[in-house]
Design a protein around this nucleic acid. Structure first.
Ligand SMILES: [Zn+2]
Ligand SMILES: [Zn+2]
Ligand SMILES: [Zn+2]
Ligand SMILES: [Zn+2]
Lengths: 170, 170
DNA sequence: AGTTAAACGTTATAATATAGCGTTTAACTA
DNA sequence: TAGTTAAACGCTATATTATAACGTTTAACT
């Protein structure tokens, strides 16, 4: 049993990078950004953002609710959905449409077109700018005479780490 | 009131093309395709496909259920979801992830990567092959070392017809 | 300090989707 | 063509996701 550390709970990605850095960067960025914009990153909103950043996995609203309850006795669905709405408005998280789930945004405050690579095995979501994809898409919508308001580009499959994991196991 | 025929119920697209042709083509294609594949396009599945093809709009499961009930007394959620699952498996319809809704596929039986252009005004969905987008996307996922199982590329905005409509009205 | 708007608490309910199990129907086999 | 098997369907219940509505508290702004 040399592969037990490669469970879905502890993915290679989780082990290979210092996730504390991801979390603190995301939170510090969010705090600054909200101050700059004059919007309130209230304790509840901050906690929800922190909970989302517990991993790079897409996380469900009611899963967040369960995790928030111990910290926030009064938490109800509306509590979570309001916080999620705020965090999305501020571009701090993304909604993964094809999963009805949410994931922290790695480029908060910058441009906001993104491609999400969603791993079926570890559930982690990788966000990519994918400039070439976006420009091809702009060209395509232009040809269609379509005015774009928003985009959801989501790819499901197997991430590089989970492929390695499969190879190791075999 | 010269613009009343341009309501959301009767879009320009609805008026400008013979939608009966869309419907019969979709149904005939589906019938042939199911025979070829040795799968059953049962009366219920056929009816649901027909209901989906009543327009080019994305349609919700429970909306379909309401419309099916008069024709199929026993219809329950499972009735609809089973039919939808079948139709999706056969590539006869697409699920619009960002709307939790469904739309008829215009290129059933062919390749299946597609871009969906979803109009916020008329709710109609245009399906495009978008070859350049797809090849850029393939390149991007390749660079990410990501093995693709499925894709959802959904763009929300304003279709050409609804833009014209806005201009006419102003 | 008073006014106003945002955020939150709370209850209820809407909307979307699946599980499980028994019955009917169709397809296949001998 | 009768028997066998698997698919499709009926039916009940329930899980999951999300919003509405309204009153109270808190923060921001005169
Ligand atoms: Zn990390
Ligand atoms: Zn993975
Ligand atoms: Zn048509
Ligand atoms: Zn339109």
């Amino acid at each position: 049993m040399t592969t037990h550390i490669h469970s879905n709970q502890n993915t290679l990605q989780s082990l290979e990078h210092n996730h504390n850095d991801c979390v603190s960067e995301a939170l510090v960025t969010a705090e600054h950004l909200c101050i700059d914009r004059g919007v309130q990153l209230t304790p509840i909103r901050h906690k929800v953002l922190e909970l989302i950043w517990e991993s790079h996995k897409a996380v469900k609203a009611y899963e967040l609710l369960d995790r928030l309850k111990p910290l926030q006795q009064a938490a109800k669905p509306a509590t979570i959905y309001r916080a999620l709405d705020f965090l999305m408005e501020q571009g701090l998280i993304h909604r993964v449409e094809s999963l009805n789930a949410f994931v922290g945004c790695r480029c908060s405050g910058h441009q906001h077109e993104q491609l999400l690579l969603i791993c079926k095995l570890c559930q982690e979501v990788e966000e990519r700018n994918a400039k070439e994809v976006m420009s091809a898409l702009s060209e395509e919508t232009k040809q269609a005479g379509f005015i774009v308001y928003s985009k959801a580009i989501e790819v499901h499959g197997l991430c590089a780490k989970c492929q390695d994991l499969s190879v190791e196991k075999s």
